[in-house]
């Protein structure tokens, strides 16, 4: 009797499908590595050079940190966030516009698996990009690493937060200019105005209060606390805020996949 091709069986989680979905976006990023990895490395090095030149003096900036020691963690964590965001949002939007999204939706993946798959691959891409951005900078600027767990927690938290936000934007956007608008009017202002480049303690009192309502502030501040020991806010508050925001965004992304928002008729 000839062997019949049987339907593949799996338990509660389709692990192979989940793993394949994760690899899909990582392969795509690898194919476009000039854009996805080298671009951020070069532009962040340029930021570093330009700030070093414009700043001019080498004295202490905050506490006993020089300005560059303060700046490097900000640049690295922002590169993590930006890369995670663009990995998931561009992947979804590209697949939607090219009509290939059906290949992902037809596969036996639950909404939860889709959410986890996209979030994990974009977060991983964010961390890879962040490591690539950090590597050359560490030769130039010495960082007094204070706590590795804090670094890892806030890097992963920031990457997941932006990867999930990227899913939501990728599902919502219908054209590239929607996507660009979300980048210009949400991701970049939240990141730039939350202490990537300066200490929020140096802001006027009202602006400082506003900055502290911004979840990205806690990501950047916690990451900087881990890598330099200097923090403008509390790491515990930061940990709670980041966890809650990640869970809320995950719930939002999961719901969009479940109802098939702009995906299924």
């Amino acid at each position: 009797m000839p062997t019949l091709v049987m339907p593949r069986r799996y338990g509660a989680v389709n692990w192979r499908g989940l793993w394949t979905l994760c690899l899909k976006d990582l392969h795509r990023a690898r194919k476009n590595f000039r854009y996805s990895v080298l671009g951020p490395v070069v532009s962040n090095l340029l930021f570093l050079i330009v700030f070093a030149m414009a700043q001019g003096r080498g004295g202490p900036y905050v506490g006993d940190l020089t300005f560059l020691q303060f700046l490097v963690p900000g640049l690295v964590i922002f590169a993590v966030c930006e890369s995670a965001y663009s990995t998931s949002s561009e992947s979804l939007l590209f697949d939607k516009m090219e009509g290939m999204i059906a290949d992902t939706l037809m596969a036996p993946l639950t909404p939860l698996e889709l959410t986890v798959g996209y979030a994990c691959s974009s977060a991983a891409m964010g961390l890879i990009t962040g490591a690539a951005v950090a590597f050359p900078m560490l030769f130039v600027v010495h960082l007094p690493i204070a706590s590795l767990p804090l670094i890892l927690f806030f890097a992963a938290g920031g990457a997941l937060m932006h990867g999930l936000l990227g899913i939501i934007v990728g599902l919502w956007a219908e054209r590239w200019d929607h996507h660009a608008a979300a980048m210009t009017f949400i991701v970049i202002p939240f990141g730039f105005l939350s202490g990537t480049f300066y200490s929020v303690a140096s802001l006027p009192a009202l602006a400082e209060q506003v900055a502290r309502l911004n979840p990205v502030f806690y990501v950047i501040d916690g990451f900087r606390a881990g890598s330099t020991g200097h923090a403008d806010g509390s790491a515990i508050t930061g940990g709670i805020v980041v966890t809650l925001v990640v869970l809320a965004l995950a719930a939002g992304a999961h719901r969009l996949f479940r109802i098939g928002y702009k995906l299924k008729p």
Partner: peptide, 9 residues
């Protein structure tokens, strides 16, 4: 944003 950042930093 660049202007704000450079002036603040």
């Amino acid at each position: 944003l660049y202007l704000a950042i450079f002036v603040l930093a």
